[in-house]
């Protein structure tokens, strides 16, 4: 009895064997395609085009084919990039790659630079910000900026924050103004440290505090977008961590674009990362995937410290 049982199951196995083998070949080739397509993708990337997801649905800011020239020199070459609502997008790349230039284009800070021409289209909430009738003053209130070196006005802490809302006519009464100053300082995480010294000069604060004061000044005028140009490069690690925590909190209300030379900072604070090289946008993608599996060789080399 038993031997027949065994031979029966053996023949079952051999009957299915060919079919199984065929299936396994098919599956293997599918697997092969899946695994190695990624590698081939990286090998076949053309140097001129941006790889990754540069576009998002319903962007807050959208750039299309942006060229920027300083006189004869082209600083940005045909960059197309979307920035989503409530996201932190970081720009990284070696010095002179055009990341700060593009950042400055987003609130027309380049207008004041002689010989600077911006071509292409940059839209904020579907409105082209480079049209002739656009007034840059309200634009810059909507798109605020924080610079590398903290630059408080030579006035009191209170006045530093109150200045913007006052000139933009955002408040009717003194109490309202005081309220805005307090809430801005609170959101910038500075209120508890300065509430008893509001009449002291802004410049009397420490570097990290000054930078948070500048952020409070920026958010006091109710912006939609905050641009940050290496906001932590003059700060110590503790002050840097405070700013990074602040960026994470501000993301709930604002769209933030940050230029940073610290790749680890980009990895820590941003949801998407854009890598620039010689004026070109090489790669954009989710920060996590850019730092674990960049698509472009140049990105890989830069973030892993192979050139820069």
């Amino acid at each position: 009895m038993t031997p027949t049982l065994y031979s029966a199951s053996d023949s079952d196995v051999s009957m299915n064997y060919d079919a199984q083998k065929q299936k396994s070949h098919r599956d293997a080739s599918r697997l092969r395609k899946r695994i190695f397509s990624a590698v081939r993708e990286q090998d076949s990337v053309e140097d001129d085009s941006t790889v990754g997801n540069w576009s998002v649905p319903a962007p807050r800011i959208s750039c299309r084919n942006v060229d920027v020239n300083y006189g004869e020199k082209q600083a940005i070459k045909r960059v197309s990039l979307d920035i989503a609502h409530n996201e932190v997008l970081s720009f990284i790349g070696p010095s002179g790659c055009g990341k700060s230039t593009l950042l400055r284009c987003l609130n027309r800070m380049n207008d004041t630079i002689p010989g600077c021409r911006v071509n292409g289209e940059i839209k904020l909430d579907d409105e082209d910000i480079y049209l002739n009738h656009i007034d840059v003053v309200p634009l810059r209130a909507k798109v605020g900026m924080v610079f590398q070196k903290p630059n408080p006005f030579p006035k009191s802490i209170f006045e530093n924050v109150a200045y913007g809302p006052r000139i933009h006519g955002l408040t009717a009464t003194k109490d309202e103004l005081a309220e805005i100053v307090e809430s801005s300082l609170r959101r910038a995480g500075l209120w508890e440290e300065v509430k008893d010294y509001l009449d002291h000069p802004g410049t009397s604060l420490s570097g990290g505090q000054q930078q948070r004061l500048c952020i409070a000044r920026t958010i006091a005028v109710n912006p939609e977008v905050i641009l940050m140009d290496e906001p932590c490069s003059a700060l110590d690690p503790i002050a840097t961590a405070k700013i990074e925590q602040l960026i994470d909190e501000l993301r709930e209300q604002y769209t933030i674009v940050i230029v940073t030379h610290s790749m680890q900072q980009a990895a820590r604070v941003s949801q998407r990362t854009a890598y620039f090289h010689l004026g070109k946008l090489i790669e954009v993608g989710d920060t996590a995937s850019v730092f674990t599996k960049p698509l472009h060789r140049l990105t890989d080399d830069y973030i892993s410290g192979r050139f820069g």
Partner: peptide, 9 residues
């Protein structure tokens, strides 16, 4: 070194 990308992998 905080390895990233191919180094991290």
């Amino acid at each position: 070194r905080c390895p990233v990308s191919s180094d991290l992998r």
